[in-house]
Amino acid sequence: MDLLDKILKRLRDVFVACANIILALMLVSNAVNIGWRALVGTAFNPVFPWTVVGFVWLTFLGFYVFVHDRGDVAVDLVTSRLPRVLQRAAGVLAVGVTLTMLVIILATAPRLISSQSDAMDMIGIPRFALGIPLFVSAALVMIVTLRRIPEIWRGPPEHYHVPEGAD
């Protein structure tokens, strides 16, 4: 499955690039807006509403990135003390819960898109556009989660946080 991992990694890089560009645009446009207001006295009013859109997109793009990079926080206080069999059971349950949430997000996407087709104020694009990166990320997170099932079987549950000292 090396190829799949490679693709997932490459997509992660693409998501990072998109998120970074959005963030950079948010910074630059706001900096210009602040400066312009102070020096010239007029404001670019669409900057703030667009910044909020960027902020939402940034979050959802980053969602895939932090899950891919095992940046989520999980607790192993209990599971690390369980016998092997129960560890596996807990691991499977954790994956089950994760997948349930992803299924919910993906299954509701079509209805959400059809119910939020009105344009956002001052932005002009439909409201559902906010959620598009969430749906794409959720699909990818699902693949990543499925891909990690064998890990649960092989050893003690691999937790989502990187071990101490990794920084």
């Binding site: 926080v73 999980a74 209990v78 954790a94 819960v97």
Partner: peptide
């Protein structure tokens, strides 16, 4: 959370 579900999923899942 105690069973090791990552928190960003555990919270909405408990809501569900």
């Amino acid at each position: 959370i105690l069973l090791g579900v990552p928190v960003s999923f555990a919270i909405p899942a408990s809501a569900f």
